[in-house]
Each structure stands twice: as C-alpha cells, then as structure tokens.
Simulated assay, not measured.
Amino acid sequence: MVELDRVRDELKISKKALQFAATGSQSITVSEGKKTDNKIIVVDSIYNDSIQYNDLTKVYYTIGTDTVNIALDIKNTAYFYVYNYKRYKHQKNFFKRLFTWDWKKIKGLEYELVNTNELFDVQDVRVVEI
C-alpha cells in the first residue's frame, strides 16, 4: 500500500480522483544449457560471469569445456491506476471562455500503467467500464 501511494504521488494523481488501484509483481527465471559438438570453448576451466542490465534484470552465463549455460533473471512490479478527470469541453484560454461564456466541462476516466523495470514495454492495455 505504501508503494502504491508513493507511485500515485509521483504521477500526481489525487486521492479524491482515484477510483481503482492495483499492483502485480512478475518474476521470470529461465535457465537453459546447450551442449556443443565436441568443440573446446574454454580449455581446462569453467568460465562464470554475469551481465546486469539494471537492478531488476540480470543474465548469468557459464562456459565450460563442452557446454554453454545461460540463466536469465527478470523482475518487475506493475502499478495500475484508474482515475476520474474533469476538463473543459472546448480547450480555450480564459479570456475566450469568458467572452463566449463557455464553461461546459466533461467527465471521464483515465488510466496509468507504470512498470518498475524500464525494459518492459506496454504494448496493449484495454480498460472496459461496464
């Protein structure tokens, strides 16, 4: 709950306008090895190393005399917010609105989806109000 409030404050969403908030954590750990066809990659030793893309994404690899092993560790937390908004129907400056007496507002819902791991791309999100 504390993290939901912290991210909501960063996005500048008011508590009053917030209708729905959700969070979910994902963790992916994949390990795969491949045996080479009698090719000597490293002579008489095993080579271990890792590549860290960011704090939440790390790749471990091990190169042996006849195998290559790779382990992938990815973590992410997604924050989803649905909130109300009020806007003027016609976007005019204050003086035009004053002279035309156009103060009509429209209401609607907006949503925001935030991932903690910047390697995650949001491709398709659909929010349906029933």
Results as ranks from 00 to 15, higher is better:
Met1Ala: 13
Val2Asn: 10
Val2Glu: 04
Glu3Leu: 10
Leu4Thr: 08
Asp5Lys: 09
Arg6Gln: 12
Val7Phe: 01
Val7His: 00
Val7Glu: 01
Asp9Ser: 14
Glu10Lys: 10
Glu10Gly: 04
Leu11Ser: 04
Leu11Cys: 11
Lys12Leu: 13
Ser14Lys: 06
Lys15Thr: 11
Lys16Thr: 14
Lys16Pro: 01
Lys16Gly: 12
Lys16Asp: 11
Ala17Tyr: 06
Ala17Cys: 06
Ala17Val: 09
Leu18Asn: 03
Leu18Ile: 07
Leu18Gln: 02
Phe20Arg: 04
Phe20Leu: 13
Ala21Arg: 05
Thr23Asn: 05
Thr23Tyr: 04
Thr23Ile: 01
Gly24Ile: 09
Gln26Thr: 14
Gln26Glu: 04
Gln26Ser: 10
Gln26Ile: 14
Ile28Gly: 00
Ile28Pro: 00
Ile28Val: 15
Thr29Trp: 01
Thr29Ile: 12
Val30Tyr: 02
Glu32Asp: 02
Lys34Pro: 00
Lys34Ser: 14
Lys34Phe: 12
Lys35Arg: 12
Asp37Arg: 04
Asn38Cys: 10
Asn38Ile: 04
Asn38Ala: 12
Lys39Pro: 03
Lys39Asn: 09
Val42Asn: 07
Val43Gln: 08
Val43Ser: 05
Val43Met: 07
Asp44Cys: 03
Ile46Val: 15
Asn48Arg: 07
Asn48Lys: 06
Asn48Val: 05
Asp49Asn: 15
Asp49Glu: 07
Ser50Trp: 07
Ile51Trp: 04
Tyr53Trp: 04
Tyr53Thr: 10
Leu56Asn: 09
Lys58Gly: 06
Tyr60Ala: 07
Tyr60Trp: 10
Thr62Asp: 00
Ile63Asp: 07
Thr65Ala: 11
Thr65Phe: 02
Thr65Glu: 09
Val68Lys: 05
Val68Asp: 00
Asn69His: 08
Ala71Leu: 08
Asp73Ser: 13
Thr77Gln: 06
Ala78Trp: 00
Ala78Cys: 10
Tyr79Cys: 06
Val82Cys: 08
Val82Gly: 04
Tyr83Leu: 05
Asn84Cys: 07
Tyr85Arg: 02
Lys86Val: 14
Lys89Asn: 08
Lys89Cys: 10
His90Tyr: 08
Lys92Phe: 08
Phe94Met: 10
Lys96Ser: 09
Leu98Lys: 02
Phe99Gly: 00
Phe99Ala: 01
Thr100Glu: 09
Thr100Asp: 02
Trp101Phe: 12
Trp101Pro: 01
Trp103Phe: 15
Lys104Ser: 05
Lys105Ala: 01
Ile106His: 02
Ile106Thr: 12
Leu109Arg: 11
Glu112Ser: 13
Glu112Ala: 12
Val114Ile: 09
Asn115Gly: 03
Asn117Phe: 03
Glu118Thr: 12
Leu119Trp: 06
Leu119Gln: 04
Phe120Ala: 14
Phe120Trp: 07
Asp121Ala: 12
Asp121Asn: 13
Gln123Trp: 08
Val125Thr: 11
Arg126Gln: 12
Arg126Trp: 07
Val127Cys: 08
Val127Asn: 00
Val128Pro: 00
